[in-house]
């Protein structure tokens, strides 16, 4: 039996909003450690990895590991039926062909119950090497979202370059060009507004903005986003997932293959 209860059900709604347009079908791997998912987009250019730790749930029971394959747009449709303040409970029997979602409104006697069909998916699990990156940037997530949205007006790709204490996002297209330069901020008065850059070596790499704009759908999950870059490897865009108390619940990591010179 698998059962996971989340008082702040909105977190699950936000996670689905952040992945459903990138990945159609995926499997949640549920173990005593928590729930995780790894899936590539249909064109195999990007990869998304989600982790929700067991101790972040208000109740978590997983007697034996289960794989819950599902259509994410179906799951997202069902989650839209839950209110933002609802408690969400996921339940799956050991050998069932569906998952049950129970939504409970706060301080009300209303509960609703939905079922989503499970699917057997051939999932390929990719091994992600755990290597240090040349550049790590932490910045406000809304700023990253804004930059990606603005530069997509100019071109299809953004060139990210980092040198000294600044990171530069540049795009070119038929209409002209655009550049956004961000410098490391000095004060830590408001940590969520800060920009911090740690650089081992200068870097310049290009990425498709279409995917970065998909990743930015995770913005409501976290006030800060972390970008990690190294020469000739995929970019990592990470949003940590925290609950209202600020406790660490897990993460969404997106990996994006670069565009390289032919």
């Amino acid at each position: 039996m698998f059962e996971a209860k989340l008082i702040q059900g909105a977190i699950l709604k936000k996670i689905l909003d952040a992945i459903k347009d990138l990945v159609n079908e995926a499997s949640w791997d549920c173990s005593s450690q928590g729930m995780s998912l790894q899936a590539m987009d249909t064109s195999h250019v990007s990869l998304v990895a989600v982790q929700m730790k067991a101790d972040g749930f208000d109740k978590y029971r997983c007697d034996r590991s289960v794989t819950l394959g599902m259509n994410l747009s179906s799951l997202s449709k069902i989650l839209k039926c839950a209110g933002n303040d609802d408690t969400i409970t996921l339940k799956a029997p050991d050998d069932g062909d569906k998952i049950t979602l129970v939504f409970e409104a706060k301080n009300e006697s209303e509960t609703s119950e939905y079922e989503v069909k499970l699917m057997n998916l051939d999932s390929e699990y990719l091994g992600i090497p755990d290597t240090p990156y040349s550049v790590n940037v932490k910045m406000p997530s809304h700023k990253f979202q804004r930059i990606c949205r603005d530069l997509q007006q100019i071109g299809d790709a953004v060139t990210i370059s980092c040198a000294k204490d600044s990171i530069r996002f540049a795009a070119k297209g038929d209409l002209g060009s655009g550049t956004v330069n961000l410098c490391q901020t000095a004060s830590a008065d408001k940590p969520e507004d800060s920009v911090s850059i740690s650089m081992q070596e200068p870097i310049i790499q290009s990425f498709a903005l279409k995917y970065l704009n998909h990743f930015a759908k995770a913005t409501p999950l976290s006030p800060q986003v972390s970008l990690s870059l190294s020469p000739d490897v995929p970019l990592v865009v990470e949003y940590s997932i925290t609950d209202d108390d600020g406790s660490d619940f897990g993460y969404i990591r997106y990996y994006l293959a670069p565009k390289i010179d032919e």
Partner: peptide
């Protein structure tokens, strides 16, 4: 001219 790489060019199946 730049070409789009795939994620499987970097990460291998386990």
């Amino acid at each position: 001219k730049k070409v789009q790489m795939r994620i499987s060019d970097y990460f291998k199946c386990e």
